[in-house]
Every structure is written in C-alpha cells, then in structure tokens.
Design a protein around this nucleic acid. Structure first.
Lengths: 181, 181
DNA sequence: TTAAAAATGTAGCACTTGCTACATAATAAA
DNA sequence: TTTATTATGTAGCAAGTGCTACATTTTTAA
C-alpha cells in the first residue's frame, strides 16, 4: 500500500503532467509547476531532489500515459496502407494531439543528447515503434522494416501538422497510396 | 552601396547566425549573442528594435543560407526512390546537419503558433518542398504528391536521427524501396 | 567648421531562474 | 508520551533575462 506522502507526490505529479501537456516544455519552471500543482517550489524540491529528477519522473509518467492511450485505441492489426492514414487521424485527436506536440519539443531537446530528455525520447521512440509493429498486418520480416517506416512517416506528418501544412499532408498521403499498386 | 552601419550590422549578423547554428535556439540570450558577435547587448538593441526583430532577421538569413547550400548540392532531377536516400546522406553531412538540428528546434517552437518562429518555419517548409519538387524526376502531377511525401520522410528521418535510431532508419529505407516494385 | 546623426560605454532596473537556510507544525514510531 | 521523521512556510541568494536611461565619443552632412 502507498504511504500518505507518496500519495501526495503522485497527486502533484498528475497535475504537473497535465500542466506540461497543455503548456509544453519551453517555459517550464519550478514555480510554474508548483502553481499548477497547487503547491510551492519549496515542496517540489522536497519530493524531488532537483528539477532534473522531477522532469524525468513526470515525463516518464506522461510517456506511460500515452502508451496506455494508444493501446486502448486499436488492437487488431491492419495492413500498412491503411495504417498510416489511421495514425494520422489518431494524432489529430484532441486526446492525443498534446502528446504529439510535446513529443516534438522533446525531440528538439533530445537532439542535443542531453539527459534526461535524450534517454526518455529514445524510450518513447522504442515504445512507438513497438506499437506500430503490433498494428501492422504483415510477417515478422516485413514488420521489421514497416514499423520504423511508419514511425518516420507519422513523425514527418506531425511536423508538417505543426506548421499547418494540412494540404501538403493530404498530397503526400495520396502519393504514398499510389505506391501500393 | 551599403552604408558603413549596415555593413557592421551584417557582420554581427553573420556571426550571430553562426553561433545559433552551433548552439541552438534553446539557450539563446542577447548577452550570449553579443558575446559571440564580439559586441554588447546594448549594441544589438541599437541595430535591432528588440529581440524578436533580431531573431526574425537572423533566422531568415540562416534559412536563406541553407537554401543556397542545398541548391549548390544537386541540380539534375533524380527519381523518387533514389532521392530519399540521397537526401538522407545530405542531411548527415557536417555542413547541413546543424541546419537540420536547428530546424527541429524551430518546429518545436512553431508548433505553438507563435511568431516569429511560426512564420519562418512555414517559409522554410515551403522552400524545402519547392527544392524537393525541383529534384524529383516526374511529371507535374506526380511531383505535387511526391515532393510533400519526400519532405515528410526526410523530416521523419531527421527526428529518428536526433535520437540515434540509425539502424531503424536503415530498416525503414529498405521498407520504402520494397514498394517501388 | 558647425550641426545633426549614428555608435558605443556604463549602470542599472524589474523580473525570473534553480536552489538553500532556517524555521515551525504535523504526523508516525518507540 | 516522548522522539524522530516528515511536511510546510518564509525569506532570500546568486545568476541570468530583456530592456532602458543617460552619457559620451565618433562619424557624417550642411
């Protein structure tokens, strides 16, 4: 059973996760997070050793939450040419979209190879490829190639989506489906 | 002819562009930029009205520089299935790589729809799709689809590259080339 | 040469950042 | 009940942020 203190910490962490999802990583500060969680920066540093530890734990939780959401969304495998459009719709959904936006920020930070962002980004990347792999209707050998390909395309789409290139995304998806013939 | 003041401004701007390319957008400050350019924050605010104006001009210049580099790299159109691997090699080149890394950061900021980042990101996006379009050996109708698709895939690759997923990129490229048969 | 304009220096303000010192109140363990 | 642990408050520090005020020198235009 959970001690009272751990319970309180989890409560704060949930609120911080929510806050980060809606406001991003860029302007995050201990005082911001504290306010969003209904406590003080002083208390955050009571529960976490420093900001890095805090971010590691909160981001890990957010990543776990995303995986949970994804796994609830679809379970039966579908062929690749249906999968990409399906995932495109998925990442546009209001529940998922904040996670994708955060993911873009995380990648930007991870590209500097600095922890905790780099490690967490790798972990999420692995999870997402694994998730794609489970969703693709194909034999193992093909999955090995198609899962990363799906990941790449969906990420690329997410980037275009970030700059409102919806029309271009549509064209690209047409181009992609032309191949499957 | 350029006035002396404008010349000095351009000189500073070149150095700031270089600095941003090597150190990213995340930790940028007027004092940092000034130091890198060999001047003071005071002088930067003499040449630019505020930080936003400065960033707009420097980022625009960086974007122009990238386009120049790209256009020097390749002029003869090649078919799509050769283009993607070619661009993969290109973005791994030391001259180009810093631009791609910066691009990832820019997208993260642009996803908040805040200027100047959003506008500049859109502009660069347009340029890159245009660049792809010129490089693809296909008729106009196909280009309309394949240029955005190329853009998406290359951006997706850049993201995987940011988290050192080189092996996965390789697999994905295999998967992609399987289609062209 | 004189007047106007541009360039540069020095200091500082008001604010935010992560984090700490020092205290007290509340709770749990003995 | 005493003791030890945990929780929470208040205040502040040192460093960094964008930006400004006020001054002075240097350059350009008349």
């Amino acid at each position: 059973m959970m001690k009272k203190g751990e319970l309180r910490k989890q409560e704060l962490q949930d609120k911080m996760a929510e806050h980060i999802l809606s406001s991003g990583l860029q302007a995050i500060s201990l005082r911001n997070l504290a306010k969003a969680a209904g406590t003080s920066d002083r208390m955050l540093l009571h529960y976490y050793q420093d900001k890095e530890e805090l971010m590691t734990e909160v981001l890990t939780q957010i990543s776990d939450n995303l995986i949970t959401i994804l796994e609830q969304a679809q379970t039966t495998p579908i062929p690749f040419n249906q999968l990409v459009p399906h995932l495109y719709l998925l990442i546009k959904e209001p529940v998922v979209k904040p996670y994708i936006q955060l993911w873009l920020e995380l990648i930007a930070l991870a590209s500097k190879k600095e922890d905790p962002y780099f490690s967490i980004a790798k972990q999420i990347g692995d999870s997402f490829i694994h998730y794609c792999s489970e969703l693709i209707q194909a034999d193992e050998e093909e999955k090995e190639k198609l899962a990363p390909l799906t990941f790449i395309i969906v990420e690329g789409i997410a980037m275009l989506d970030a700059i409102d290139f919806d029309r271009k995304i549509g064209k690209a998806l047409e181009g992609l489906s032309d191949f499957q013939k």
